[in-house]
Nucleic acid binder design. Structure first.
Lengths: 182, 182
DNA sequence: TAAGATTGACCGCTCAATCTTA
DNA sequence: TAAGATTGAGCGGTCAATCTTA
């Protein structure tokens, strides 16, 4: 019994959850990015990265950092470019392996993060606090943790076309009908 | 609920929820975008837009469409450019007001959406179905609905500058002007 | 004056290709 | 060969400015 039957209600609920996740993310990231940018010249992703870096005082390999915040290696390079230009982060080499380089937060980075966190974390706590009782928030955290992206690595990103009987896709030979070069 | 004192635990839990939301969004959109792009030349946002358009057979004002999917007006223009080039969507003018133009899904758009939905919705239902019992999923939907982005308009996006921003939304019953306001 | 739509400049991020070192 | 990091090209999206019409 490889695949299960998907009832219309299953699809309906999944679709609802997905839509709400998308819209919540869009609304919240836009708001917070605007606030953070205006107040400290940072983005939401910058904060996420700096948060990882303060917890790793000896630095962290860029590829591992990428996995933690769900960016690609090139995405991390680009993001760190900005933080390095702002002197919030610096590079360090690995003595034993010249291929790897570490990202290390600077004192200025720690200070800037501390300042930015004050307002940002308060806004976040207020936003959630206004909407959820403590037990509800705990429940939300637990439920969200089951979604992809919850682990440490990014293995789960490599997602194979699973279940048999997947409609819309002939298994052999059929080239994906690419609609337009966008 | 006026303002309350923010305990360290409040902040902690809010931060956890925020982080999980960010990572779940990053992981899932990347996966689904890759699948949709390969199979049908579409993106997650394209699907969201087409879904709105099939439910509005007479078309919808671009500004209202933007609010629905949480994009800015220019974002909608850009996204529709692609869909129009692929002939999945076409433009229509409002007879009573030459400023507004409507986005209308084409037959090809309906067909492509139908094809793409088959696999995409199944993948979505499978993803959620593997992780949640029906009651849990229902709970997740309800909890997510309380976050910003849950309403119909984008009033909550317009966010005034200043330290203590009010993130309270007023979903309110502002009727989106349907066709021919006259 | 204001509302709707678009454009130009730019940012964040991805993929594919490349370079370097193991 | 493979792993880590970067680069070039390009997409998806934002903001600010502009154009047109009410």
């Amino acid at each position: 019994l490889p695949d299960q039957v998907l009832s219309a209600q299953d699809v309906e609920q999944a679709l609802l959850a997905w839509g709400r996740l998308l819209r919540a993310h869009a609304a919240m990231t836009r708001t917070f990015n605007a606030e953070l940018q205006a107040a400290h010249g940072l983005t939401v992703s910058d904060i996420e990265v700096l948060k990882v870096l303060v917890a790793e005082p000896d630095g962290i390999r860029r590829v591992d950092l990428a996995a933690r915040v769900r960016l690609t290696p090139s995405g991390i390079t680009r993001l760190l470019e900005g933080l390095q230009r702002a002197e919030l982060v610096c590079k360090a080499q690995c003595p034993g392996d010249a291929r790897v380089s570490y990202a290390v937060i600077t004192d200025a980075g720690r200070e800037t993060l501390r300042e930015a966190e004050a307002g940002f974390f308060a806004a976040l706590a207020r936003l959630f606090g206004e909407r959820y009782a403590p037990a509800e928030l705990e429940r939300l955290v637990e439920l969200l943790a089951r979604l992809p992206g919850g682990g440490e690595g990014l293995d789960e990103l490599c997602h194979t076309e699973g279940a048999a009987g997947d409609s819309g896709e002939a298994p052999s030979g059929r080239m994906p009908s690419r609609i337009t070069p966008r």
